[in-house]
Amino acid sequence: MGKVKTLILRAPGTNCDAETAFAFQQAGAVATSVHINQLIRGQQRLSDYQILVVPGGFTYGDDIAAGKVLANELRLKLGEDILRFIEGGGLILGICNGFQVLVKAGILPRLSNGSSPPLTVVANDSGKFECRWVYLRVNKDSPCLFTKGIDSMYLPVAHAEGKVVADSEVLPELNVVVYYADEQGDNKAGYPYNPNGSAGNIAGICDASGRIFALMPHPERYIRGTQHPQWTRQGAKEHGDGFQVFLNAVKWAKGL
């Protein structure tokens, strides 16, 4: 089998496509940046790819609410293609704005019965855009294939709307993959460890199959050792904590 093909979805305001493509390339995949119009107009087909990524950015300016307009566009214009892609075993990764989009499009949380109860992402409690590094604890019981073998990660967040909100009966149903935590891994830690006030310190969730994963922090921004904010103190690791996420995805997709 040839290289794994990754589609990096681009829409007006997407801005993390290049570094996300770099991360997948480093992990051994072919990454192609595809504009949403190309999918809608049939110039590109989702079914030609094994991995779909909705990268970070401010799609459509995050006007009205972050990710909302692209979420509707995906749902209304590409809903069936995406469903077929999921049913065909494809992987989907949403990062930052991609998280907001997947949740608002109802592609996540996609529980075991296939339903996506209402879940949303809203403005940070601080009322500010927060660009800072956070400690993440990985839920060992999560079915998420992207985080296999990872216990914890140190990654940057950069968002103004990252607070996960859901009705109290929905929260326990979610497949939480990563929690905001402190240095010791305590996932009850408050601000700034939890940079947005997210319910249950949720930083990322996946669907019941573990093949659809979205998170607010940016794994693609910690691929190389020198991206760590303290590498000049601690020395640079060969790979950043985020690299394994991409490696796992490519490995899995190769096995398809």
Partner: peptide
């Protein structure tokens, strides 16, 4: 902190260090 200084993934030495 209200500026995104990490986007594009290129930063080697950031504005806040230590």
């Amino acid at each position: 902190r209200q500026y995104d200084h990490e986007v594009q993934g290129a930063s080697v030495l950031k504005p806040l260090v230590g």
